[in-house]
Design a protein around this nucleic acid. Structure first.
Lengths: 151, 151
DNA sequence: ATATAAATGTTGTCAATGCAACTGTTGTAT
DNA sequence: ATACAACAGTTGCATTGACAACATTTATAT
């Protein structure tokens, strides 16, 4: 094998896109007391009222600790209701309030716009792109699960 | 506009893949005193001897502070030479040593394998995928540059 | 020659996220 | 009924990366 052709590792592109997304949304959210990381939570909560934190973690495949911190931020920014679920006092029942809904709707539009911009000049549709990324994400998760059980 | 259809934002997939890559490589590098973030640096240095930190930052479009910390780790792990460039004493002249080369070559193979695994069952070639990701990354960078100059 | 600007790297601070240890609540097995 | 396991969330610490302030060295302009 010859070690030439410094192809940039795929992972570098994933880093770049994610970092640029954080920069873009943090700029937009400067005045809102929240940051880019809460965007997906707001979007999820707009579609799924009365969710618990584990629902969000499962949906986005992220750590429950990260969700706890994000939800705390949304709470501090007074964008959500967060009440103990009386049917299961381990859980919280989380919903957007009016301000939260307003920001969530705005963020969906901004995100749509951003996604359109970054997928310009590629020769597949945005739907195909999303499907491919979904598959890659699943593969990446599965790979690590397999490594776990292998030892 | 109707706010249904909770499509997962593209950015969520980019997060997942990046995080899973970090987990995968950190597991492999457990014994090497370095972590996943240094993988691209080692790969770059294998192809580009006597680089300076700015070269790496430009190549991967990451912050020079992040490069400084990564290079420090490679130095602490005794995988590189790092000497002041006598033609320009602001710069360092960085190259892999024998151990660094060995790990770099190993990491290239592991990375190839990992990339193959995560791009299984998608209906475009890995080359096309890379091209698309490159374009998306460029678009994401350009978007923020334009925002800067707009105000 | 001197003052100012630009280049290169370092470091502090912050955001996003994983993991592990912990708390409190609920479910299960004996 | 009691003990133990599982669930839901919180928090400390680590890693990747951005940004800004800083130091040092070099280049430029007057």
């Amino acid at each position: 094998m010859v070690y030439k052709n410094d192809n940039i590792p795929l992972t570098a592109y994933f880093s770049i896109v994610k970092q640029q997304q954080i920069i873009f949304f943090n700029k937009i959210l400067e005045k809102e007391c929240i940051t880019a990381g809460q965007t997906p939570f707001l979007i999820y909560l707009l579609y799924n009222e009365k969710s618990c934190q584990e629902d969000i973690a499962n949906h986005y495949k992220i750590d429950k600790g990260a969700v706890a911190r994000g939800i705390r931020k949304l709470e501090d920014a007074k964008l959500i209701y967060k009440e103990i679920d009386e049917n299961n006092r381990r859980k919280y029942c989380i919903s957007l309030n009016k301000d939260g809904e307003k920001i969530a709707k705005k963020l969906i539009e901004i995100n749509d716009e951003w996604e359109k911009t970054i997928s310009e000049n590629i020769n597949i549709s945005k739907e195909d792109l999303k499907e491919i990324l979904r598959e890659i994400a699943n593969n990446a998760i599965q790979t690590n699960k397999m490594e776990d059980s292998d030892g």
